[in-house]
Structure formats: C-alpha cells, structure tokens
Design a protein around this nucleic acid. Structure first.
Length: 410
DNA sequence: TGTCCACTGGAAGGGAGGGCTT
DNA sequence: AAGCCCTCCCTTCCAGTGGACA
C-alpha cells in the first residue's frame, strides 16, 4: 500500500476527541442533568397512559437549547422500556420544522401509526379529510393510548394549521377504543395567543415551562459531556466556563454551549494543538456565527438573492436611507440584466420582510411624513460576505456589468 | 388641523406542479 | 384521460397609517 493524502490528516485526527458523537446536539445522554423537575412533571402527567388512560394534553414551552427535545426523546425511550410491546401506549414524535404543512404532518403521523405497508397513506394526492378519516380508523383498530409529540408546533400555525389542531384535539370524540393525547413543544411563548380559545384550552390542559440553564448548570452539563468525549487533561480550565458564559448570555442555550465546545475542539485538532484553549473557543464562536450566516444566504431562493443584492447596491450610496421603493427599482434593473422574472412590488416587499426575519437585514417600518410610510432597510451583515456568498453563476453577468471594482474585492 | 404620501399588512384567489382516483 | 386534492409561489385588491407639511 502506498501513502495516501489522508494519512497525515488521519494521524492528526482523533487525538483530542475520543468520542465525537457525544458532543453532537443530536446525542441523547442517559441522564439529563438539571431537568429532573421537568422530567418528573411530564412523567407524572403521562403515566396513566400505561394503564390505557388518556393523559392530559401538554404544552411545553422554553427557549432553544433548554432541553425540550432531548427530554421528550428521553421520555419516549423510557416509555418504551416500561411498555416494550407498546400494548398500552405508543409514542409518536413529529418534528414540525422539517415538514410544516398539515398534510406533511399527518403523513408523518400516519407513517408511525399504520404499520401495514399496503394501507399507507401516499405522501401527496389525497384530500385532508380522507387522511383524517384513515388515521382515525387505524388509531381505533388498536385499543391503547397514542401520545403524539409535535415538536416546533408553532411552525404549523403560519401555514393555516387550525384544521389540523382541531382534528388532533377533537379526535378522541370520534375514537371508540383508542385515545390520543398531544404534547406540543414550542419556543414561542406567544404561540397560544393565535389559537382559537377552544383549541387553546385543549392543547394546554397542562403546561410545562423549561427555564434556561444558568451558567453553573451549563458548566456542569459541559463537564459531563467533556468527560466522555475527550481524553483527560486536554481542556484548559477556562474553556468550559467560557463556553458556558457565552451561551448563558444569549439564553442559557445548552445546544450552543455544546456547539462551541465541539467546534473549539475541532479547531484545536485541525491546528494540531494538544490542548483546547480559550482562543479556540473564541475562534469557534466566530466560525459558528459566520457559518450560520453563510449557510442562510447560500440557501436563499434566487429571487431573495436578487432582492438582497438590490439592497446592497442601494447601500453603495451611503448618504441616503434605503427604502422599499428604492430596492424595488434596483431589483427591476438587476432582473432585466439577468433576464429573469420580475416579481411585483408586494412580493418583493414580502421578500424584504423575510430577509429581515432571517436577520440578514434590519428593516423597520418608519413614517417619512409627506414622503409616505415604508421600511427603512439596513444591512445586518458585512456586505462583502454577502457578495462573496451570492456570487454564483446567477450573478456573474451582473457583477461584471456593474463594476469591476467590486470584483476585485472578492 | 387636515391632507396625503408610499407604502404596510391582510385576505383572497390563480395557476403550476406534485400526485391520487375512477 | 379527466377530475380531484394539496402546497407553493405569486398577484391583485384594499383598507389602514405615522407623521411632515400646508
């Protein structure tokens, strides 16, 4: 065997990280420290399901990285241990962020309920009513409790999700034998405000709030993971407190803390350093932020990219404030140059709002008196980064056309 | 004090594209 | 093949509005 270009890289790897898996945010540890109260609380509520009694519906709220998903996954595992053959109770987990339309969610649920390959629901094509009926029919063929966990439940709402909530919360009136109880998870505390009162009260029969971790708790969580993931002695003593402090500042986000630690370790490893230090944590923070931004911009639909480009072009004149109308004018020009479809004002205005929600720009509504009321648009991210990312085949013609000065910047 | 601008925000609906059903 | 259905992206329509200016 000859030498491979990977040899050097492979030798350098795995010197620091013993078990990378443990630092991934998807990893479910055997213990979830500092969530004992929440776990007990939920367990108490859903225990009746083991006797085929319907537990109350639960609405779980808490910011990102407070362990909601981890806890619910953990509970699902434990429930299966208590009832291995699922004779009394089945646990169904659906992440509404991945599939956020009513059909998709029901399809997802049905896939876990209907085991018989031949009666499966097609992933599109049926009417929702038919899907409802089919799911209800299959639920009732058994005689047990179905606990349906809807993670990121607020995502459904924007997509006309009223019907699906109505279905899920009233389904017990149709069922003769089986029972369904819903556990909704959301990080949006205002989520229930948008629900009709009936659905609101049904969905939130019980409420469990996950508070953010404080810095000490975050440190403890990180220490436990680090012990399993790393060889001993490779962590500078400041590293864990530093990771914890950074993420405690934001929202007590354990996911972020773990990301920091993992990426810091990656960076140290790649540099061939023997010890993970504060400096690595700082690089990690920058890298994570930058990567996230780049990823968001990269995956933007091309029309949004053009809108974003229009905003940048408008900002080249530093003296004026950029408003929706200006952006639209430039947007038209760019579309013409690229010879692509020109969307209407309303749509472009909506795309601007979306860019704002993604945090790429800051667009707040402001009144200019006689000059109308519109959005004042600012860039939230370095323009060179955006241009660098957007510069794909789509924009080659435009960048060449506009100015060669711009090109040299990249 | 009222006017009036340049939109905003919400709703409704079209139509293309996925696919099922008969 | 014709008729449905759902979702996504988009257009059309319209009432509503904060504040500079007359």
């Amino acid at each position: 065997m000859g030498e491979s270009i990977f040899d050097r890289s492979i030798n350098k790897r795995n010197t620091l990280i013993k078990n990378r898996n443990i630092l991934q945010t998807t990893y479910i540890p055997d213990q979830l420290p500092h969530r004992e109260n929440e776990i007990n609380n939920i367990v108490e509520i859903i225990t009746p399901s083991l006797n085929k009694d319907k537990p109350s519906n639960i609405l779980i709220t808490g910011k990102t990285g407070t362990g909601k998903t981890a806890v619910l996954n953990y509970i699902g595992k434990e429930l299966l241990k208590a009832d291995p053959k699922e004779e009394n109770c089945s646990y169904i987990y659906v992440n509404c962020e991945i599939v956020d339309n009513p059909y998709g969610i029901l399809y997802n649920i049905s896939n876990q309920v209907i085991k018989d390959q031949n009666s499966k629901i097609p992933f599109t094509g049926w009417s929702l009513d038919r899907v409802y009926e089919t799911i209800a029919f299959h639920l009732d063929r058994e005689d047990k409790v179905f606990i349906i966990v809807l993670d990121e439940i607020d995502r459904i709402l924007h997509k006309n999700g009223d019907d699906i909530f109505y279905f899920l919360t009233t389904i017990n009136e149709i069922l003769k034998k089986s029972k369904v109880s819903i556990i909704g998870i959301t990080n949006n505390t205002k989520f229930t405000e948008f629900l009709t009162p009936k659905i609101k009260s049904r969905l939130g029969e019980e409420k469990v709030v996950f508070p953010p971790y404080n810095p000490e708790q975050l440190q403890d969580i990180l220490r436990r993971r680090a012990e399993m993931a790393f060889e001993p002695g490779i962590l500078d003593e400041g590293v864990i407190p530093h990771c914890a402090a950074i993420s405690a500042q934001v929202s007590g986000d354990a996911r972020k803390a773990l990301d920091l630690l993992r990426v810091a370790a990656d960076i140290a490893e790649r540099n061939g350093d023997n010890v993970i230090t504060d400096a690595h944590v700082i690089s990690a923070r920058n890298k994570i932020e930058l990567d996230a931004v780049i990823e968001v911009i990269k995956t933007l639909p091309s029309q949004s990219k053009i809108v974003l480009m229009s905003i940048i072009k408008n900002h080249e004149d530093k003296t004026k404030t950029v408003i929706t109308g200006d952006v639209y004018a430039v947007y038209r020009e760019i579309c013409t140059i690229l010879s692509c479809v020109v969307l209407k004002e309303k749509r472009v205005a909506d795309l601007i709002s979306e860019l704002d929600m993604l945090g790429i720009i800051h667009a707040r509504v402001k009144s200019f008196g006689r000059n109308g009321r519109t959005r004042e648009i600012e860039l939230n991210i370095n323009k060179d980064i955006i241009e660098f990312v957007i510069k794909d085949e789509l924009f080659e013609p435009m960048l060449n056309h506009k100015s060669s000065k711009q090109m040299t910047l990249m």
